[in-house]
Amino acid sequence: MMTAVQANGPQRIHRHKFTLWVAMGSMVMMFAGLTSAYIVKKNQSSWLEFNLPMVFWYSTAVILVSSFTIQTAFQAHKAGEMGKYRILITLTALLGIAFLVMQIMGFSDLEANDIALTGSRSNSAASFLLVITGLHMLHVLGGVVAILYIFFRAYNPASKAGNSLPVELAATYWHFVDVLWIYLFIFYNWIG
């Protein structure tokens, strides 16, 4: 029986991890498409220049810190320090939610400064910011849901102890949405 199991040779990478990496490639294409569209549009007529809301700088810091917390959570899980793990993973989820709230605050800042994001008065510069940032927020939200899922699974007596793969997957994804935001932030500020 075991021949089939070993058939794949030394397992380089778990297949779910592999799938996640391919999926991240797919998401990269989505944002690459959107930011390319942004550039194309910017080089055409009537493009509105405006500064990013200040709160985006803070949210960037928040998501950076959260990458750090989830990484430490993963290491704690691997080392079997479940108490530390629970604190850190909860913290990560909270930071994720804080990030989302700050992004929304950024949007309302813009609206308050008379930069319409949607509607007939809107300029596509602002609409692009809304759509791209909004899609990124959905991806962060997905990460928060995944964290909550593995968090509550950890309390389920049926789930096997000592398997840190789900945490590792969540951490990898979380770093991904973090890097994605850094890219977008740099793009908005200095490239696009």
Binding site: F31, G33, L34, A37, S127, V131
Partner: peptide, 16 residues
């Protein structure tokens, strides 16, 4: 996997 997401982003702009 590499091209459908771009179509989706086109559709999202269309929805807006």
């Amino acid at each position: 996997v590499l091209s459908f997401p771009v179509l989706l982003s086109g559709f999202i702009l269309l929805i807006f």
